[in-house]
Design a protein around this nucleic acid. Structure first.
Lengths: 262, 262
DNA sequence: TCTTATTTGTTCGTATGTATT
DNA sequence: GAATACATACGAACAAATAAG
């Protein structure tokens, strides 16, 4: 084969296939040639081909349907407007019913989302972040599952201390006009500040199942905390999205007189 | 072996090794048992062990030195204070000489960074973002390479239109007091707004070489643009960091009266 | 400096299992 | 049920890098 030696064959073949897909040689939704066929074409063994395909799967470029073949994925990158999504204007943009709706409609896809409400013991990390004792059922969890054209694209459980949420609209499926942020304000816990921490990690089993991810497809975790003006954390929301599918946009003003960087 | 069948052996062994590392059974900096030894211990073939180790490499948990062995990595996660790093206060925090310095010193490590200056043809994406014609040598590139304890941790080329930067301190290695942001202000291009887009991708070859990454170790790309008050983009900086090594922190105020979310 | 043993990297050929068509 | 396609594993082999003598 025409492939040089210092680089492993399975990586080189992954490159060739990736290029071919990006050139449009294999259209989105279509099948790649079967592994035996590719093995013959590139004159390598089938496990080597399989290894190359595994790389592309990790990148979200193809999806494998056992018994059927390897499907080229359509990769419409979803942009998350991380800051402006908390403004009323974001809700109106695109005629959507919320920021997520606008984000998905902007791609010409159809958004959908579910919410599950339950009272639960939060993960220890969450309890600590909320300043609550660990191991007690002291939060309301609002688990949102979001879809674009019925494809799951985001999992976002939100944790609110029971002493704030219990018996309020926050603990209802329909949180009412203006969303839960408006409810927080009415209850005297107006959120004044948001912090988000972005990291990349492997999906948990549950995330993988819901987002239809393989284990070598990393997710972006957005650890979102809402703070009141007197710096009490009142909401932790853990957004989990497939890393290959999303771009996160942030934006803020700076004061040049005060600014610096090296 | 004690491993169940529905999950592949190489993944299960990766889990076992990961747990052992996280339990501290293999100390940071120490060697894992050799692959033949692990193969015997878990009663699988050596390629299966190798495959498991490959997973851990992708996660940044171990680093392999051929001929020597597999080293457990010390993983001090670096937090990037994405917003406050543009405030003068960030520079003073920790007695560092800049935001990056503070970030690294906060981990008890020693920061170091280089800057290379050159006049160059920017990548097409960059030219478009700056509103410049493509394919022309119309930018100054300030390429920063950053290290923690001499380990490369970030690569960040910054592109500035030639018509702004040429002949100014921006095109010098030492950009002077207050950093280049102060120079922009003096030149009448005060940056008033920052946008950052965060995405995850495979490293380019150059990035992989510098950051000592393998191909299956994703990077976070932070596409950073500085805008003047009249919305001219005057600087594009592409921060590239190993995804397993960094957490990005963002923070902003919200106005509850105006806020909304679904 | 050179040699040899050790350790990981990669590939092959083959075989078996599982899911889908 | 049969054929097809991918998933994974084994054992063997050779290459490349390192370490030890």
């Amino acid at each position: 084969m025409s492939i040089e030696s210092p680089r492993s064959q399975f990586r080189q073949i992954a490159d060739l296939l990736r290029d071919a897909i990006e050139r449009g040689e294999y259209a989105p939704g279509s099948l790649l040639p079967s592994e035996p066929e590719l093995a013959e074409r590139y004159r390598v063994s089938r496990p080597t081909i399989n290894r190359a395909v595994t790389i592309l799967r990790g990148e979200g470029l193809v999806r494998v349907e056992r018994g059927r073949g390897t499907v080229v994925r359509e990769i419409p990158v979803i942009r998350r407007a991380s800051v402006t999504r908390y403004l009323r204007s974001a809700r109106e943009r695109g005629g959507g019913r919320g920021a997520f709706d606008s984000e998905i409609r902007a791609l010409g896809m159809t958004p959908r989302s579910d919410v599950d409400i339950e009272r639960a013991v939060p993960p220890a990390r969450v309890a600590r972040a909320l300043g609550l004792p660990e191991g007690e059922p002291n939060v309301i969890v609002r688990t949102r599952r979001m879809y674009a054209d019925d494809i799951p694209v985001q999992l976002a459980p939100s944790y609110i201390p029971l002493d704030i949420a219990e018996g309020t609209r926050i603990a209802e499926r329909d949180s009412g006009p203006g969303g839960i942020i408006s409810r927080f304000a009415e209850l005297g816990y107006a959120q004044a500040r948001i912090t988000e921490s972005v990291r990349v990690r492997r999906p948990t089993e549950e995330e993988g199942r819901f987002l239809r991810l393989e284990e070598d497809q990393p997710v972006i975790e957005i650890w979102h905390v809402g703070w009141t003006a007197d710096d009490r954390p009142v909401e932790v929301c853990v957004h989990t999205v497939p890393a290959y599918l999303w771009v996160l946009d942030y934006e803020w003003p700076i004061d040049p007189a005060n600014a610096d960087r090296r």
